[in-house]
């Protein structure tokens, strides 16, 4: 038996490999192939993200007519001479933070309700609750604009029936801020709901049963099991939403156009206002660039220990 095997292998001629040229070897490497396959996407990102980013950096250093290099003049002008800038910083932060907190809270509560609906009816509810998120926001905001109308809007009409109002939903700075946040929460909460729902479903039932036996109340189960188990999803969703909300454009643009008195402007809408509508493109570019450090700090802060606490299960 052994002899036969040895004889057989001796009969097979050894494969002789030709020495490959350095170029052939370079293209044969797995890392090169991987790079080549990713190249179309890298090019796309280059054209659509990296080039515009550097171009706006360049623009921000020019004068209003875009003829002279002015260094950091636009930035220092915004920081020290333009009062409206600080109003925009304040209202952007207020808008992003409060909207994300409400979206996360409402998403969390609704996810729990949906999670507890028997499997049969759950699809239906999930679908219905996702509707705000799938309608293009410019369109749904238009609908909200009509709802908010102080004379003919459904909201004030309903409130008048019970003797309240009329409320200047978008006519008074405080209420306008509230309305913008409300629409953003309405639009964004379903995203949190669906993310939290997926995360809730991945928590094994046995953990809750073990907690039941250990004597945990419903609140203690949320506090000591649900929240720690969802920690990563909460962090990632919050960060993601914070960035998207901070950079929001369409809701404010449609609902208030930044008014009244520029009180509801966000970075994006204000940059648009200054750069496009007022024709000072370099200053508008500088405004939009101010978002980068603020969001970078948020990213670092939230993602700090995701890796450390990675998959613990």
């Amino acid at each position: 038996m052994v002899d036969m095997t040895a004889g057989q292998s001796a009969a097979v001629p050894r494969q002789i490999r030709k020495p490959k040229s350095p170029i052939a070897r370079f293209f044969g490497r797995r890392s090169t192939i991987a790079f080549l396959m990713a190249l179309p996407l890298i090019l796309l990102i280059g054209v659509l993200v990296i080039y515009p980013a550097f171009y706006s950096l360049h623009l921000a250093t020019l004068n209003k007519r875009m003829t002279e290099f002015r260094g950091f003049d636009n930035f220092s002008f915004l920081l020290f001479k333009k009062d409206a800038f600080w109003t925009v910083v304040y209202s952007s932060c207020l808008f992003a933070v409060s909207a994300v907190i409400f979206k996360a809270f409402i998403g969390f509560v609704v996810a729990h309700f949906v999670h507890n609906i028997p499997a049969k009816g759950q699809r239906k509810w999930r679908g219905m609750l996702l509707i705000p998120w799938v309608i293009p926001p410019a369109m749904s905001t238009l609908a909200w604009l009509w709802l908010f109308d102080s004379s003919y809007g459904a909201l004030n009409w309903t409130l008048a029936k019970i003797g309240i109002g009329p409320i200047p939903w978008i006519g008074e700075p405080g209420w306008a801020r509230f309305s913008v946040i409300l629409v953003n929460v309405w639009f964004g909460a379903p995203f949190f709901m669906i993310m939290y729902l997926a995360s809730l479903k991945s928590v094994p039932d046995a953990l809750y049963e073990a907690a039941d036996i250990d004597g945990a109340t419903w609140w203690q189960k949320i506090r000591y099991i649900t929240l720690p188990m969802m920690r990563n999803i909460i962090a990632i969703t919050t960060l993601f939403s914070l960035i998207v909300t901070f950079a929001n454009f369409d809701i404010v643009r449609v609902l208030t156009q930044g008014g009244p008195l520029d009180q509801t402007h966000l970075f994006a809408t204000w940059a648009f206002e200054i750069g496009i509508r007022s024709g000072d493109i370099p200053l508008g570019a500088s405004v939009s660039l101010f978002m980068v450090p603020i969001l970078a700090i948020a990213a670092v802060f939230i993602l700090r220990d995701i890796n450390k606490r990675g998959n613990e299960a």
């Binding site: 046995a206 953990l207 049963e209 073990a210 036996i213 250990d214 945990a216 720690p228 613990e312």
Partner: peptide
């Protein structure tokens, strides 16, 4: 009587340890 008031302890098939 809810589980927590029955004064029992249970060992589960998949252990059900709290991973965090």
């Amino acid at each position: 009587v809810p589980p927590k008031d029955r004064d029992i302890a249970m060992v589960f098939q998949n252990y059900a340890l709290y991973p965090h």
